[in-house]
Design a protein around this nucleic acid. Structure first.
Lengths: 340, 340
DNA sequence: TTCTCGAATGAAAGCGCTAACATCAAGAGT
DNA sequence: ACTCTTGATGTTAGCGCTTTCATTCGAGAA
């Protein structure tokens, strides 16, 4: 049984309020008394009870991070950034993710009926975003939304400016060649990220006055395998001078490269391929993948930072932070030399 | 300001104990009263205060997971397994990792002076294991250690039987050939996993009465790059019929394959290469990597399961669960056909 | 001397909950 | 008619802390 503040007080011959002061507001108590109390604290290995303390302070020092899934480097990086930042700010991180088949409600219920959290950072999948707002609002704690927008709650937001990243990529591809053909391979058509990337694809093409063919747009499911299969099938129609595939993530780009190579088409000579995200795979393909770096870990960190800031000052007006995505030119686009 | 149990009681014309009973032990209260109280609870959006509750119950429903780092698929999988299991068991997961330059103490301090956690699963790096036992013991909560052993605390343990996995791999390599030469490429020599894998390497070689040369053993740092460089340098000495490199993880195996290919040595014809862990890379190399599947996510799940079990029954005697590692035969060892 | 002020400390009121114990009415057993 | 159960509910004592307010005491001011 851990010792309580009362035992410390008794042992040190002071009242419990003095002990409390030593812990929370040292400056209010006489130096000598302080020393004595601290000695007893060490001796008894006393640690304040977090529940009792939370009951008074209405703070736990814990912020929640909720992700739609825990698979992949993507989420892993968000978590990493969030964890680092949380520690930096003297908070702890409670992690939770959706289970397959979870709806918004069971999902939040799992986070604990009981409100222990000081704040919550959420990233929701497209399918779950609807209707979750009010549920979040009931939590009555500061909310930060990652990479999206949720109606029905006031919240801060941190997004990644993929639009501009994708645009930079497109411009890079079109740069010194007026007859480049770019094929777009997205994830699910409903996916918000895919949509943003596709938008940028269209816009840039239009701006450069290139033709835009529906035949050059494909939607897959973000997996290596699906992209590999697609590439194997379509490679004959794709390969050609100044032809290029813009995949909406690195996994698919890697699949396409593998598919091309399997069919004897060499990258980037016969077909350029670029990806998105700059995950580990981008450095394992051959040739190395030109891609757009998406600062996932910064996103996690920023989310926690915003959260803690708002916890400290609940009255701030909601803000949105936009993180830039950066073009990373490697070898798979065939332009490396010109860039470096 | 969220409403308290008292307001619910008043509104429903019952005492607070009745409300409490409705929440915790429904069966003790009259069906009709129950209904009435529940209606008020919904109306007021009442949610029990976790601090007050914890103060009585001495339980938060939160278990901690502490990892040495958050980089890589490895940890990501552990987290995933742990998270799933935690939800399964009605608990939440608090995540924390060591920062570069952390010592055992600052590390634990960050977890909260205050004891909110019901239990803690820890995985420590080799360098930090020393002296952390007593610190953990002070926490006064159930401890589960992942992939290791810590002195100075009573704890449950979950380990992966890499020894047997590595052995299976070695036996597979030596199987139908009495003059196979196996080169071992480990991570840091001090690393416990590398040691286990090396032991199995030696044992199997000895058992098969093969010679064991110190020239065939290298220690790197688990990275792709270091392995790539090593391969480029040594490939001439390595390549040969029935020669094989046993890398202590997939990353290095991938690096070695890349290095070999860069030097015009084809895998597995001129040199077989196998890895360990069965991470994502193992399916991105060409040829696909033969490796040993290490059930990271089961490890996380088992850790949480043990933890929750012990929280429920603190008096159980400490147990150790060993998870099997499984040989996964793909193409890089050149034996695929025989296996399938 | 008397008053005031400030520094150091103590006493005690909760924070919102659970659980042990008390109460009470209504029917059962004798 | 009486005790004894039994089911439903109320009363209340904490759980371990923070914080407000009260107290004490000595120094300096009037």
């Amino acid at each position: 049984m851990p010792s309580s503040i009362e035992e410390v007080a008794k042992r040190a011959n002071v009242s419990i309020s003095t002990v409390s002061r030593v812990i929370n507001r040292r400056e209010l108590v006489n130096e000598e008394t302080c020393k004595r109390v601290e000695a007893v604290i060490r001796e008894l290995r006393y640690r304040p009870n977090a529940f009792a303390r939370g009951l008074m302070l209405r703070k736990s020092g814990i912020v929640g991070l909720v992700l739609p899934d825990l698979h992949g480097e993507f989420y892993s990086e968000v978590i990493r950034g969030a964890n680092l930042q949380a520690r930096e700010m003297g908070h702890n991180l409670l992690l939770s993710s959706a289970l397959p088949g979870d709806d918004a409600h069971s999902w939040l219920a799992a986070l604990g009926q009981h409100a222990l959290l000081d704040g919550l950072a959420v990233m929701v999948s497209d399918t779950m975003a609807r209707g979750i707002g009010p549920a979040l609002a009931e939590l009555q704690i500061p909310i930060v939304v990652l990479d999206g927008e949720i109606g029905g709650v006031e919240h801060d937001t941190v997004v990644i400016d993929q639009r501009q990243g994708a645009q930079a990529m497109m411009e890079h591809l079109l740069e010194d060649c007026h007859d480049t053909r770019v094929i777009f391979v997205g994830g699910l058509e409903t996916n918000i990220d895919t949509q943003a990337r596709y938008q940028a694809y269209c816009d840039t093409l239009r701006k450069a006055k290139r033709s835009l063919s529906a035949d050059d747009v494909y939607y897959l499911d973000y997996t290596y395998e699906s992209a590999y299969r697609l590439a194997v099938n379509k490679i004959n129609q794709w390969a050609g001078p100044n032809h290029c595939v813009f995949a909406a993530n690195d996994e698919m780009a890697a699949g396409i490269i593998a598919g091309a190579i399997a069919k004897g088409v060499s990258v980037p000579q016969d077909l350029a391929v670029v990806g998105f995200d700059d995950t580990r795979v981008a450095q394992l393909t051959k040739p190395l993948l030109t891609t757009v770096r998406v600062p996932m870990s910064s996103m996690g960190a920023t989310a926690v930072e915003l959260l803690c800031r708002r916890i400290a000052e609940p009255e701030r007006s909601p803000s949105t932070v936009s993180l830039p995505a950066e073009l990373v030119v490697r070898d798979s686009c065939g332009h490396a030399r010109q860039e470096k």
